[in-house]
Amino acid sequence: MRKKEWKAIITFRTTSDAMAFEKKCKEHTIPGRMIPVPREISAGCGLAWSAPLEERVRMEEFLQSQSTAFEAITELLF
């Protein structure tokens, strides 16, 4: 397995919100990628956006500027 690194994980209420967010990230060259939701956050089905932890502030600003629907941002080793 890869060495785990600290990440900023953004979760969403729906797949639709996650896809909208991914599209915006791609449009604005925001770093990160979609991952399955890690168990520390939720045991259910779902997607989450994983970005390097050092990007957290930028992610928060981006989320605010885009009025993007999301559930939470969590810092996690993934």
Binding site: M1, P36, V37, P38
Partner: peptide
């Protein structure tokens, strides 16, 4: 975590 394995 199964998510970690599947992602890997």
């Amino acid at each position: 975590d199964s998510s970690e394995v599947s992602d890997e």
